[in-house]
Design a protein around this nucleic acid. Structure first.
Length: 628
RNA sequence: GCCACUGUAGCUCAGGGGUAGAGCAAUUCACUCGUAAUGAAUAGGUCGUCGGUUCAAUUCCGACCAGUGGCUCCA
């Protein structure tokens, strides 16, 4: 997500409000720097702030730090901590600070032949009226606004986590530094708990579970970021789509289907080509045009120019569904009485994400949005948005995802990059605000976060590693109706321009299911479980009885299998547990005699025996009500 | 796209200049079993791809592809 508060300069006052834990982490960053500088005296340090769960320090260094070095660095840090150096604040003038930096004395233990280059640069960024301070711990002096803990001895529970690279000041034009991440806590117990949480999080990583539970596969031969939904994953997706579709029907949506490609001209009209060409798959040129051009000896570069200028016709994999839906809307005349028109589609789109950004199902190159476009009058905007939010609320509520953040993205008052007149914006922003306040959840208004074509509401959830993912979104759009010249006839018998609303409660099926896997740690509620019941006959003698039960459940529409393997029941249970199957039905001599099944639930354990019909009713009910 | 690390059996991983090894899974056989692993046998791999160095490369080097952690980006 784009927010990067650490890049924004904090005022001294803000810094002094730093929490005790952040203070400790920041001091630990200095301890880290001290250690690195003892081991590699040529180290040039940039910034070393506290971050969520820890801290980092950016350093430029000949030696490439690897995790193998951590032991050595931590050992040196331990010495610094043991020395129990006092963190001493010293106020200096700008000139004095600059002199130290020139001598290489900053972020170092001695003067060096080379200047402390990044510190010089950072010094230049300090506002004229701000006090400049140096923090010293032992011989390690650093340009630093603080604040710090009293002594290095306070930093006793820390661990280096990873080393990565980062552009200096987050600008891709700047050189890359080595960023050493660490975590630090008040004491070893809290550190241990944190590390344990991380370990648990790793266990529920959707990439790991996706493989173990056979949900999806990404194959090199198919392509990066292109998800293959395996049978188990497809069940989950289909159930979710059915669930949404039910609610779409209730809310008066019409479902449509559209192709995966469209003519370049369509995207010229929408403004996506060639303006956003970098984030799209390259265009598909028509075969005859390609042949004619290659006969002329036209190069690839020329071809792409011709595609761009429109001299050569071509198609594009759709990066979004809007233009197709717009064309459906435009294929009829519309009276104000028809509005709102709500067109919904599970539409697959393709975007050329940078390769380094791809990962699992949460960031992919082809994905299916649970998309819809609403065409309505200005007056209907608020009500329609409320309808959209209602849907998001139902969806997240049904899945027990209560831990989300709502962002209302408004326009940046200073900017002129927005389309549409400001009256409309004011009204739309107000409508969003009012709609959001009906959610019953706190929401944050974020000026500047609006799209250029309209304000929006986003739902953001955190994954297990603490990364935030935008899922559902509701966006008002003034741009596309304008570009495509959309119209409806009003009560005054004159043409009017409708407002368009984009909305996707899940965002994308891929990302949503990825987040859902982690949310449930693979233990999907029964209605979503690919396999809802597994029958476990105790021995070969009972497979006939198992078959009878199997047929009954199948007829009731339950996804059931029977484990006829030549194994002990303990082993079968273990397997079923690992597969996160909600219900195990055990059938042996006892059950045969009493004509019952013994039920074991993956979390609740042995639930005793009951007649098959009773169990069937129970589970059918559980599935129908989509209970958690 | 950038930096770093990684790529060995279906999965998890060990090994290492002289054409490869474990556990689980798979297959077969025996056992007919009561709430998280019965035992035995068998089979399974151009060691990511392509080049280079070498008498010899899976091992060393390079490029590419892919994954992971970050950075940048995300209409």
């Amino acid at each position: 997500m784009p927010e990067s508060p650490e890049n924004q300069r904090k005022t001294l006052e803000e810094r002094h409000q730093m929490s005790d834990l952040d203070r400790l982490r920041h001091s630990t960053a200095h301890v880290l720097a001290t250690a690195i500088c003892r081991i590699w005296p040529d180290a040039q340090f940039a910034a070393g702030p506290p971050v969520e769960n820890g801290f980092y320090y950016d350093v430029d260094l000949e030696h490439r730090i690897s995790p193998d070095d951590f032991e050595k660095i931590e050992a040196e840090m331990k010495k610094v901590v043991k020395e129990n150096q006092v963190f001493e604040r010293m106020v200096v003038t700008r000139d004095e600070a600059m002199e130290m930096a020139q001598k290489g004395r900053l972020a170092a233990e001695t003067e060096r032949g080379v200047p402390s280059q990044f510190k010089i640069d950072l010094l230049k960024d300090i506002p004229e009226d701000e006090e400049i301070s140096i923090f010293k711990n032992g011989e390690f002096w650093d340009l630093c606004a603080g604040p710090h803990v009293g002594r290095t001895g306070n930093c006793k529970a820390y661990k280096l986590m990873s080393v990565a690279s980062a552009f200096y000041k987050g600008d891709a034009a700047n050189p890359q530094l080595q960023r050493v991440y660490g975590t630090a806590f008040k004491n070893k117990t809290e550190l241990g708990e944190h590390l344990e949480r991380l370990e648990e999080a790793k266990q529920r990583d959707h990439r790991k579970l996706g493989k173990e539970l056979d949900l999806f596969h990404i194959d090199e031969a198919v392509g990066q970021g292109l998800v293959l939904w395996k049978p188990n994953g497809a069940v989950i997706r289909q159930e979710l789509q059915n669930f949404i579709s039910e609610h779409l029907e209730r809310q008066g949506y019409s479902q449509v289907f559209t192709p995966h490609i469209g003519k370049l001209d369509l995207y010229r009209t929408s403004g996506h080509f060639p303006y956003y060409a970098d984030s799209q798959f390259p265009p598909l040129a028509e075969r005859e045009a390609m042949k004619a051009l290659s006969d002329e000896g036209c190069s690839c570069g020329e071809l792409s120019n011709k595609l761009e200028s429109g001299e050569v016709a071509g198609f594009m994999l759709k990066p979004m569904n809007c233009p197709h839906h717009i064309k459906i809307f435009q294929s009829n005349h519309h009276s104000y009485r028809d509005l709102p028109v709500r067109l919904a589609e599970f539409g697959t789109v393709y975007r050329w994400e940078q390769s380094g950004e791809l990962g699992g199902m949460t960031r992919v190159r082809g994905f299916t949005q649970d998309d819809a476009h609403l065409f309505c009058t200005e007056d209907q905007v608020k009500e329609e948005i409320m309808g959209c939010l209602e849907l998001v609320k139902i969806v997240l509520g049904t899945l027990g995802m209560e831990d989300y953040r709502v962002r209302v993205g408004l326009r940046d008052p200073d900017s002129t990059k927005y389309v549409g007149d400001s009256d409309k914006w004011d009204r739309a922003e107000q409508a969003l605000r009012e709609a959001a306040s009906t959610l019953g959840t706190e929401f944050a208004e974020e000026p500047g976060e609006a799209a250029f074509y309209g304000p929006k509401i986003d739902f953001v959830v955190k994954d297990v590693i603490g990364r935030e993912w935008q899922l559902g979104t509701v966006q008002v759009d003034y741009n596309l109706p304008e570009r495509f010249g959309l119209e409806y006839i009003g009560a005054d018998n004159a043409p009017h321009r409708p407002v368009m609303i984009h909305r996707a409660p899940f965002g994308s099926m891929e990302r949503f299911v990825g987040v859902l896997i982690e949310h449930f740690a693979g233990k999907f509620p029964t209605w979503l479980s690919p396999e809802q019941v597994r029958i476990l006959p105790i021995s070969e003698k009972f497979v006939d009885d198992a078959d009878v039960v199997y047929e009954k459940l199948r007829e009731a529409g339950i996804r059931v299998t029977c484990d006829k393997a030549d194994e002990k029941v303990g082993a079968k249970i273990r397997l079923a547990q690992l597969d996160r199957i909600p219900y195990m039905l055990i059938i042996g001599a006892k059950e045969q005699e009493s004509n019952q099944v013994s039920i074991r639930h993956r979390d609740r354990g042995d639930e005793g025996a009951m007649p098959v019909d009773e169990f069937t009713n129970r589970i059918v009910d559980e599935v129908r009500s989509r209970s958690l």
